[in-house]
Write a protein that binds this DNA or RNA. Structure first.
Lengths: 338, 338
DNA sequence: CTGAAAGCGCTTACAG
DNA sequence: CTGAAAGCGCTTACAG
């Protein structure tokens, strides 16, 4: 609007003919039996007229905590987070301000980033798919909820997916279609959720007597291009091992495989079946449409935020809620009808 | 780590046997000719030993500004922003902390969100593809740079794309392939960049004597599902008008059209050609691969952040840099060789 | 119901 | 080169 001096609570107070204490009370809705209706209105008018905005830094300083909730995720521009964030925001409402920490795809924030966030005195932290190392860095004492961090539920509050059945369905589906030797394209994020996905696929494949090839080269960050390169480089080995299907740690990895397969002249699904995890919207329009495990993002965000708010309010009950259920989705990339 | 009382600069000072003033100087690298080498080391040791983190709120309060740079975009989970953000971070370095404002896909932040951000006393604001209404709400006096906001360069610093040639190429490409009647699927974001895209397409089509059908129904937010519905609903009208190609405002819209076309039993590109804008990585693996206009994200982020930092430092030269060039990319969705 | 005042943890002239 | 002190703009007991 203008370069006029910043408007402060003192200016609002003066205009309303009241004290800054009263202004603060009104702005924080702590007026019950403490501020008269007439004065509440007076403050509100002055606030509107002056376009007053409370200084978050000063507020956090006085209060000891800001109203920031920080979401840390290794892959924020993954559209999966669109839904997660929607769930979080719906739950957080206007009481907290959601802010995202940004890192390269598939890279965990550095300890330096974390210090900085700690300096913001956040009301709470939401961390998606953390690695063990990352969690060790996370030394703050603010309320913390992990998303999709299986295996860490004992030490930290977490909201996870139950992927047991979905992964069994996925592997069974491949077995039924005659695949005897499959590859697993892993994510390099070092995240427990990826350890679990891989573990479960291997275990289920074993029950069918299938061979799972997992060469060191067959892994990448969560990025199409990187996954495409990783797959292309690993393909000679995979091919000579007799691999006829690739299970990928995420849909994004699978897209990379689809692209590489095209380059290599491999027909999907006839020469190679491909599957992912996530069920991003794009998976319905890839060539061919992608068989995957659907991880519902919005409920995850919802549940995590709800749990976090409870912790902030210290009304957290003893146990958390049950895991969210992942589901298997068969499409053309494994020869299913699209 | 522990629930011990927060460590403050005073504690660091005590441990180092120095004053808080000196501690502050060291932490802000303002030691030149002001702090002895020995004392710098002393402070650094104490900081490390105590795990001290400066309180951003207090710092911002004392300084009048935080070191937060806020990126506001209507569609953050669009993978396009992965690259934009990479460019921004590279340019911002460790001096500023990048933070993202989150909104629903295609929805501009509310005035309320903005007030809250203003309360954070950001060092600067980066706003992607704003609507006019949104800009009017943006009343703060902090340095501001717009990304992809054609037509607003006169009043506000902006970094834009030059899409002139790319759009001409796109329309010419359709004309060469015999399309005489095409549809335009717009975004409802109310953003100047979308006005421009549409305008340019219409103008170029006119030079070929092509008809462009733009029914009110043929628009949606930047979301596959929403675009699919919008297209499906508009199709009867488009079909009866003789439309053989759809130009979409974004790749995401185009994916929705691909999905709807599949549902409607329309073969792409034989019965319907489809194009987008962005050239997201997914566009290489859609069915069929998508003809589009490539908007390079990383350079955009780079240029915008660079400009913002100059403004913050008040070293901004009179003129901005030239626009970034968008390029046309022909693929199978318009019958080009993929 | 209301306000004066202390205190949150920094940064920055300022005096030495 | 160093430190004491003012001040940033809030919130919250506390006294009335």
């Amino acid at each position: 609007m203008n370069r006029s001096p910043r408007v402060t609570a003192a200016m609002v107070a003066e205009r309303a003919g009241l004290s800054v204490a009263t202004v603060s009370l009104v702005l924080n809705s702590k007026t019950d039996g403490r501020v008269s209706a007439a004065n509440i209105a007076r403050v509100q008018t002055a606030v509107a007229e002056l376009g007053y905005v409370v200084d978050q830094g000063a507020s956090a300083l006085a209060r000891g905590r800001s109203d920031l909730v920080i979401l840390i995720a290794p892959d924020l521009s993954n559209p999966f987070f669109g839904s997660v964030i929607r769930g979080i925001k719906a739950e957080l409402g206007s009481r907290f301000q959601l802010v995202l920490s940004v890192t390269e795809s598939g890279v965990q924030p550095s300890a330096g980033d974390l210090r900085r966030f700690a300096g913001l005195r956040p009301a709470g932290l939401l961390v998606d798919a953390p690695s063990d190392a990352f969690l060790a860095d996370l030394s703050g004492d603010e309320p913390l909820v992990l998303l999709d961090a299986p295996g860490l539920e004992e030490s930290v509050a977490a909201v996870n997916y139950d992927m047991h059945q979905a992964i069994a369905d996925l592997v069974d589906h491949l077995a039924e279609r005659g695949h005897r030797t499959i590859a697993y394209l892993d994510s390099t994020t070092g995240t427990t959720t990826f350890h679990l996905r891989r573990r479960r696929v291997l275990d289920r494949a074993a029950t069918h007597g299938m061979t799972v090839v997992t060469p060191g080269a067959a892994r990448s960050i969560i990025d199409m291009q990187a996954a495409a390169y990783a797959f292309r480089d690993a393909w000679p080995l995979l091919e000579s091992s007799g691999v006829t299907a690739v299970v990928c740690a995420t849909d994004t990895h699978a897209y990379g495989v689809l692209e590489a397969a095209r380059t290599l002249g491999l027909a999907v699904p006839h020469s190679l079946a491909v599957t992912g995890f996530d069920d991003l919207p794009y998976s319905r329009v890839t060539s061919p449409a992608l068989t995957t495990v659907r991880l519902p993002g919005e409920p995850l965000g919802h549940a995590a935020a709800k749990r976090l708010v409870r912790m902030i309010d210290e009304t957290e009950p003893a146990e958390g809620q049950p895991n969210l259920v992942a589901t298997f989705v068969a499409r053309e990339s494994t020869g299913a009808i699209g």
